[in-house]
């Protein structure tokens, strides 16, 4: 076991993947000498050379499109998108090419591309640097989408994403880059499944589903709720497409109550899909309609207001109160003025 930060764990995972497979190459802006704006690729160009760690021209569609060509040639590109809000110029290549080429060519061409996206808010940044665009990609057939919440998963899952023959969006919660944790570098990535959700806190009253940056917040909420006598089961989804509904369903059949929390905007978001799917699968086991605690349907706000937008411990607990039918919940307004 080694203690390392979240960011360092990704670096270590990248390094190991590059050691294991000479076809793994990194592409992105400022990832060479600088090591990326978050230093995730720090030292890798020096150790593996500029032919394996490519500083790309400043054009996201170009990076993604040339990664497609590299994959055609048998490489496993790992693309760094510098910030969440910069992924949109690459959107066409991701949705129309990366996601569809395996289907289009009836399996002849694989696209083992990993797209790393630092995402989410909470770092006081200007516009375009704090977004949560994951639902655009979970809605796109042909892509797999994961989000990591701790250094061990960051280390293991980046290797699993790179080894995956399908394209993977790998969402990194940038506000957690400096969180430290224990990482077992000897773990074999093939021994676990990045598609599996994980129950990180056992509970019996409410199932609280989240991923990425809000996992620590959800865990804290479970601790706080237990002080009030409410037992919360926290699930870290890890995989956002596909969602491991079997794990969520098993939990909800036990608790009868579901709260989903994410930073991304509410309408049409991943929480909506989870609420709908779980309602379809275990309606008769529900004691209350699933409740979403999410960012608002607004452009990501300026930094002095961002903590009003981001779900925090108290808003999550308010959602818990609502599925528990406690009268103090303020989040359920359907019976009120609206």
């Amino acid at each position: 076991m080694t203690t390392m930060t979240f960011g360092r764990a990704i670096t270590a995972g990248l390094r190991r993947a590059m050691d294991d497979d000479p076809k793994v190459i990194l592409m992105g802006e400022d990832i060479g000498k600088l090591g990326g704006v978050f230093r995730i690729t720090d030292g890798l160009q020096k150790d593996f050379g500029p032919h394996r760690v490519l500083d790309s021209p400043l054009a996201e569609a170009g990076i993604m499109g040339t990664a497609v060509g590299m994959a055609y040639r048998g490489y496993r590109p790992v693309v760094e998108i510098q910030f969440d809000g910069f992924v949109y110029p690459a959107f066409d290549q991701i949705v129309c090419q990366v996601a569809k080429l395996h289907y289009r060519t009836q399996g002849a061409v694989t696209m083992p591309i990993t797209i790393r996206v630092p995402f989410g808010g909470g770092i006081g940044s200007p516009e375009h640097h704090s977004e949560s665009p994951e639902a655009y990609f979970t809605h796109t057939s042909g892509l797999r989408v994961v989000s990591v919440s701790n250094p061990q998963d960051a280390y293991t899952m980046i290797q699993q994403a790179i080894a995956c023959n399908d394209p993977v969006l790998y969402f990194e919660p940038k506000r957690r880059y400096h969180v430290k944790g224990e990482v077992d570098e000897a773990v074999d990535p093939a021994s676990s499944d990045m598609g599996a959700a994980r129950v990180i806190t056992r509970g019996t009253d409410v199932t609280l589903v989240t991923y990425g940056p809000l996992v620590p917040t959800a865990r804290d909420a479970a601790v706080a709720a237990s002080d009030d006598g409410t037992s919360i089961e926290v699930i870290d989804l890890r995989s956002l497409a596909p969602v491991d509904f079997a794990t969520v369903e098993a939990s909800v059949r036990k608790t009868g109550r579901l709260v989903i929390t994410h930073e991304a905007a509410q309408s049409g978001g991943l929480g909506a899909e989870i609420a709908a799917s779980i309602t379809e699968r275990c309606f008769d086991h529900l004691e209350h309609a699933p409740v979403r605690v999410t960012g608002f349907d607004i452009p990501y706000p300026y930094s002095k207001l961002e903590f009003h937008h981001l779900p925090d411990l108290d808003r999550i607990l308010d959602g818990v109160d609502r599925v528990m039918r406690r009268p103090n919940s303020l989040s359920g307004l359907e019976g009120g003025a609206l």
């Binding site: 190459i25 032919h51 490519l54 569609a61 170009g62 993604m64 499109g65 040339t66 990664a67 497609v68 060509g69 590299m70 994959a71 055609y72 040639r73 048998g74 490489y75 066409d92 290549q93 129309c96 090419q97």
Partner: peptide
């Protein structure tokens, strides 16, 4: 879109 794929493929040829 294919012009980028060709360019990336050519970058792979260079690497090879």
């Amino acid at each position: 879109a294919q012009t980028l794929h060709a360019t990336g493929y050519a970058m792979g040829i260079l690497n090879d």
